[in-house]
Design a binder for these strands. Structure first.
Length: 461
DNA sequence: GCATGATCATGC
DNA sequence: GCATGATCATGC
């Protein structure tokens, strides 16, 4: 069959691809073929490959357009209330071959062979729409900006080293900055062999983190990115230092200084009572303008947590996460749960400590939760889900105070569940009526990291 | 002094 | 109106 483009000419492929803009698959593909073969089901990318570009979907190691070394990737967008586009999810790339990758360098890796040049096709995902009716919004060829490539190379090496250390089963997205190792497979049983351990490891693929995809989208859409400040100003810097090293180097001169002293040295004026105070102080130290976001943190989806330690090193408060909805948690599985997703992020902890009633900067630390502790957090999540499912939240009511069966600090060393609401009547609906109180809704709760865990496993380590 | 339940303050 | 970071109140 003659193709409507020349597969050995990059411009021809890109030009043909760009005709997709503003169209849906139904508009550009042969409807008869579609209805016979797909009847609205299947995956957007597969339909696109087969019925628009005219080749059979494959899972070969080389790029889809082999002659020009270009890989085709389609991915969904979501639209914000202000009508801007954001990535709906991470962008999943090739599967990690644990056996082969340990014998490769980044430059000659399967990853680079497959993804050095990507033809990106972003479509607007709309709930309840047939995939054939999603509108294609953005089409362009994309390759790594040179500074990003240095970060991604280090990420690739981090992933490879963990496999070489026999720890493929302990891989986590939080291990890396832009390039993640995300799980890929029908279910938790999708495992494969790893070279230096007998433990089967979950099947994983390289992926760009959602935050990173958002920046790709902005660059393709030609959004002027005036809203970002960069830590890494050149390829030279990126080759020499990791994001981690750059951040620690910037914080280092302020260790042992009080907040007042830091403000005086940086000369930045920040409203000390504002909620955004610590976020702004962090930006001041990093040399980022206060009205801008730290580009590298957004791309890597780094969660910044400020902790105030008491003089005995114990954090003054536990660390909260977003509230969970009772009706949602009962439908989730741990592997796809919100809580696990959060815990697999990379964190930047900024530690202050009270010293004679003044707060002094102690240290900053990049951290992501070790595999063994994720398994502990899973127990807390499982128990929480069980309690909500059975409608056994309230244990007893004493006076006006309701005591719950939620996992507390003595249940688990990593995490516990506690209220996080405006007041007791700030509630979410329950999927099952509470057995004891007959209530149909309950005060909002969230998962917390225990302050003792933060002290022992993050601050002191 | 800590654990647990409850609530506050701010900004979008 | 709500999410989020922060803090308070009470009982042991």
């Amino acid at each position: 069959m003659k193709l409507p483009y020349n597969p050995s000419d990059k411009n021809s492929v890109i030009e043909y691809a760009k005709k997709l803009k503003g169209k849906s698959l139904r508009q550009v593909c042969d409807l008869n073929i579609l209805e016979h073969s797909y009847s609205g089901k299947g995956n957007f990318g597969q339909v696109l490959e087969k019925f628009y570009f005219g080749y059979e979907p494959n899972s070969i190691a080389e790029a889809d357009f082999a002659q020009i070394g270009m890989e085709l990737k389609s991915s969904p967008l979501k639209q914000l209330k202000n009508s801007e586009y954001r990535s709906k999810e991470r962008l999943v790339l090739n599967i990690i071959n644990y056996i082969n990758v340990v014998n490769q360098n980044f430059e000659n890796s399967d990853f680079i062979k497959k993804n050095a040049s990507i033809l990106l096709i972003f479509y607007l995902h709309q709930p309840d729409f047939d995939i054939l009716d999603y509108l294609i919004k953005l089409v362009d060829e994309w390759s790594f900006p040179s500074t990003d490539l240095e970060i991604i190379k280090k990420d690739w090496e981090t992933i490879t080293k963990k496999i070489a250390d026999g720890k493929a089963h302990e891989l986590s997205e939080g291990d890396t900055f832009y390039l993640g190792a995300c799980t890929k497979g029908a279910n938790a049983l999708s495992v494969r062999k790893q070279p230096f351990s007998k433990i089967p490891a979950k099947q994983r693929a390289y992926s760009f983190k959602q935050g990173y995809v958002n920046h790709i989208i902005a660059s393709i859409a030609n959004d002027p990115s005036e809203i970002y400040g960069k830590l890494i100003t050149s390829v030279t810097v990126a080759k020499k230092q990791t994001i981690e090293e750059i951040v620690i180097e910037k914080f280092n001169p302020y260790y042992g200084k009080t907040i007042e002293e830091i403000l005086a040295i940086t000369g930045v004026e920040i409203n000390t009572t504002a909620k955004s105070f610590y976020a702004n102080l962090t930006k001041a130290i990093l040399g980022i303008e206060l009205d801008k976001e730290v580009e590298e943190f957004e791309k890597a989806e780094i969660i910044v947590k400020t902790v105030r330690l008491k003089e005995n090193n114990l954090p003054k408060e536990d660390i909260s996460f977003p509230n969970f909805k009772y009706e949602e948690i009962v439908k989730e599985e741990w592997d796809e749960s919100n809580f696990k997703d959060i815990l697999e992020h990379k964190f930047l902890f900024v530690f202050f400590q009270f010293e004679n009633d003044k707060l002094v900067l102690r240290k900053v630390k990049f951290w992501n939760m070790p595999y063994s502790d994720i398994l502990e957090a899973e127990k807390v999540w499982v128990k929480t889900k069980e309690i909500v499912t059975k409608g056994k939240i309230v244990k007893e009511v004493v006076g006006g105070t309701r005591y719950t069966n939620f996992p507390n600090k003595s249940f688990n060393s990593v995490s516990h569940v506690r209220p996080h609401a405006l007041n007791a009547s700030d509630t979410y609906n329950l999927p099952t009526k509470d057995k004891l109180t007959k209530a149909k809704e309950y005060t909002k709760h969230c998962f917390w990291l225990n302050n003792t865990y933060v002290r022992d496993e993050i601050y002191l380590k």
